[in-house]
Design a protein around this nucleic acid. Structure first.
Lengths: 220, 220
DNA sequence: TATAATTTTTAGGTCACCCTAAATATTAAT
DNA sequence: ATTAATATTTAGGGTGACCTAAAAATTATA
């Protein structure tokens, strides 16, 4: 099925919201995520429905059809591979790659993307730790928990971040926290649920609950 | 000035036609090059004129304004750098890069393109031998002549091709002719202006005048 | 120089993608 | 179970980028 770049973006939005909520995606949430009006979303849902890439019931929300799911995962694959390219080959920092990848992802050439994948050494995760689906759309799973679930004394290595917000990532840079960084919980403050955390073998920092909830770690 | 991808393509077309003819570009030639109708071209010329990226006088043809020229050369720079990337890094062959570069060229990030340029080692020419303008839009010139201007006994190295047509490039592949290949004119046939040419130190081939006119060589 | 041929523009329409305002359906609350 | 609040859709409109057909301007030719 031939979809435009805009349509692809809608499919991606539906995929991402569904990933979080695991239920039929409603109009307003798409509008909010895409910074557009609910009326425009309805408009688009009709078009996507006619192309059979979504299952749409008026007033009842929307899910991706198998075909729509394929388009969305492919788009995510392309996005994340380009992010790897930007960081690993062009020396971009992880907080600066999103917008450019958002444009690059729409170039539709299987040959291009498979060559790129190969050139990058078939990476499994992007610079934010998000899994890169393979050419068949399969995501690699990983047992990860957010840092705030660790108890004092426990140690995790950073394998991902939930939020991809540039200021958040820049803040992590300033704390010397990056993928692979070891985080040891020293203590928890009951009052605000913040944590004192040892970062690698160096300094200790006080991290707010919000920060901790956005740091995905693998327990070691 | 902010221009859309489509507008950029029109500016590029105007640039390329003007490069060949050195005079005001007429509506029909743009329509022909872009596979669109003359009416659509007129439509677009009005828009481009309002954005002050072209000098447009009704019925009299069009030229690029300094600003339009900058946009066009920048687009060409991006196109050619991506072609180098595709060939040198992703192992594409020179006949397969055009269409993908045509999409990649519209990603507008100076940071991206300058990093790419650097990553590629600041190449001066693309895989077809076309010069890559620098960030200021300056093209590197080179004294080159078409193969058909050589006389028997003279030798040239291939530095470019005029035509970028995929079948033409594939034909050159089959003759083992690529950039850098040494071509020695053995003899000329007056009747059809074809030439017998020694390719590197190997075989000799009979090349039609049309082929010879499309091979750009540097005399040695 | 008048007419024919060609080029270009105008007129009027379509489609994708967006908008706001108003109407309708669903869900929550009294 | 009504009513109030919220979510969603419809109605009507705008813009960019295209189209065809017809009109007008330019250029070529007799």
């Amino acid at each position: 099925m031939n979809v435009t770049a805009t349509e692809e973006n809608y499919l991606k939005a539906i995929f991402k919201i569904n990933e979080r909520t695991n239920k039929a995606v409603n109009t307003n949430s798409i509008a909010a995520l895409m910074n557009t009006s609910p009326a425009s979303v309805t408009d688009m849902l009709k078009r996507l429905s006619e192309k059979k890439v979504i299952n749409y019931i008026k007033y009842k929300g929307v899910t991706l059809s198998p075909e729509g799911n394929k388009i969305a995962t492919n788009l995510i694959r392309r996005h994340r591979l380009w992010e790897v390219f930007l960081v690993n080959k062009l020396n971009f920092s992880w907080e600066n790659v999103h917008d450019i990848a958002e444009e690059l992802e729409h170039i539709k050439s299987d040959r291009l993307i498979n060559s790129l994948d190969n050139f990058l050494g078939n990476p499994r995760f992007d610079p934010h730790g998000d899994p890169i689906p393979n050419a068949e759309g399969k995501f690699m799973l990983r047992n990860q928990i957010s840092l705030d679930q660790l108890r004092p004394g426990q140690i995790g290595t950073l394998v991902g971040v939930k939020e991809h917000d540039s200021p958040f990532l820049t803040y992590l840079n300033s704390l010397n926290i990056e993928l692979g960084t070891q985080l040891k919980v020293i203590s928890k403050i009951d009052f605000d649920h913040s944590m004192k955390v040892k970062i690698d073998t160096n300094n200790e920092s006080q991290l707010s609950q919000k920060i901790c909830k956005n740091l995905l770690v693998k327990r070691i």
